[in-house]
């Protein structure tokens, strides 16, 4: 068996399955977005850009767009902020490798949980009548707080769960990255009598700028798939306070009469945004790797 045949046999099945499935779903989304197809009736016809034009006049779509943008902003900054803060804290206060490992293990647990499970765990704790958090709030004289039923709190409350899962995970990554940094610049700064926080703000964190930006972009793309968490915790409610784009597309495509074409137009939009973000990540990653 020559090299060429081996490479072909190894690559072609995997790549052709992936390419077929990807092509079918993208071509399908474009095709359906140009029709007026619904799940209810078998008949449909070509309507051109009608679905896209209607999106522009759909206030619920713009609400979903706004919620998605807000969700991105809160979860990405929250996750990265928490990760940087905690990793510096652990780096400074925990020196024994054993304890560092214990903390890393504990911090990895939340991200491994299925989103559905994390959602239930926190719904249980947020519950106004029997949740632990409201019990603690009661001890200091607040509450009961309707974390998931109050429109002004619901999005933040769900975002806390996302940050709990990803912020702790990224803390472990940033800590591991800090451990691999060369010691010389840090020791030089210490000789100059720099304060602890100054060393991190001006020496270690700038050295990690590349990986931190990559992590932020990875989280940004990951945050776009928030469906599981929000679906189980609030279902998009109260009202439309937590309805992100993928939730709205799901409601349109499945629940509300199965308006497949309209939902396709929306998911295409999401696809374009994700692809652009992803291409930027890839290019940036190549640049830093070089």
């Amino acid at each position: 068996m020559t090299r060429k045949i081996f490479v072909r046999l190894a690559l072609v099945p995997a790549i052709s399955i992936l390419a077929t499935l990807a092509l079918v779903s993208i071509a399908g989304a474009i095709w359906f977005a140009l029709m007026n197809r619904t799940l209810r009736s078998p008949e449909y016809e070509f309507v051109g850009a009608y679905n896209f034009l209607r999106l522009l006049r759909d206030s619920r779509f713009f609400n979903a767009l706004e919620i998605s943008a807000l969700w991105e902003l809160i979860t990405v900054t929250g996750t990265l902020g928490l990760a940087v803060l905690l990793s510096v804290l652990i780096y400074e206060t925990v020196q024994k490798p054993l304890w560092r490992n214990v903390i890393c293990f504990a911090f990895l647990v939340p991200v491994l949980l299925p989103r559905v499970a994390a959602a239930f765990i926190w719904r249980f704790m947020y519950s106004p009548s029997l949740g632990v958090i409201n019990y603690l709030c009661g001890l200091v004289g607040i509450g009961p707080v309707e974390f998931l039923a109050d429109p002004s709190l619901a999005l933040i409350s769900v975002a806390v769960v996302d940050i709990w899962q990803w912020g702790l995970f990224f803390t472990v990554i940033v800590l591991k990255l800090m451990e691999t940094l060369p010691r010389d610049p840090i020791e030089a700064a210490m000789l100059d009598n720099a304060r602890r926080w100054e060393i991190h703000a001006y020496v270690t964190l700038p050295m990690l700028k590349g990986p931190l930006v990559s992590l932020a972009l990875v989280k940004a793309v990951e945050s776009l798939r928030s469906f599981d968490l929000i679906f189980v915790m609030t279902g998009g409610g109260p009202g439309k306070a937590t309805e992100t784009l993928d939730l709205y597309a799901y409601q349109m495509g499945i629940n509300m009469g199965g308006r497949i074409s309209y939902a396709s137009a929306m998911s295409l939009l999401l696809l374009v945004v994700t692809t652009i973000a992803f291409t930027v990540i890839w290019k940036a990653g190549k640049k830093w790797a070089a």
Binding site: L11, I15, L18, A19, A22, V24, S25, I26, G28, A29, W31, F32, R37, L39, V221, L224, R225, F227, L245, D246, A249, Y250, G253, I254, G258, I260, A263, S264, S267, L268, L270, L271, T274, T275, A277, F278, T279, W282
Partner: peptide, 24 residues
């Protein structure tokens, strides 16, 4: 290029796969 394609699939929003595949 192949790696770029493969990784980009990892980042595809699931809803963009789900909606067309229902009808298909």
């Amino acid at each position: 290029d192949v790696q770029f394609f493969v990784l980009s699939l990892r980042f595809m929003p699931p809803v963009a796969i789900a909606i067309p595949f229902i009808v298909i």
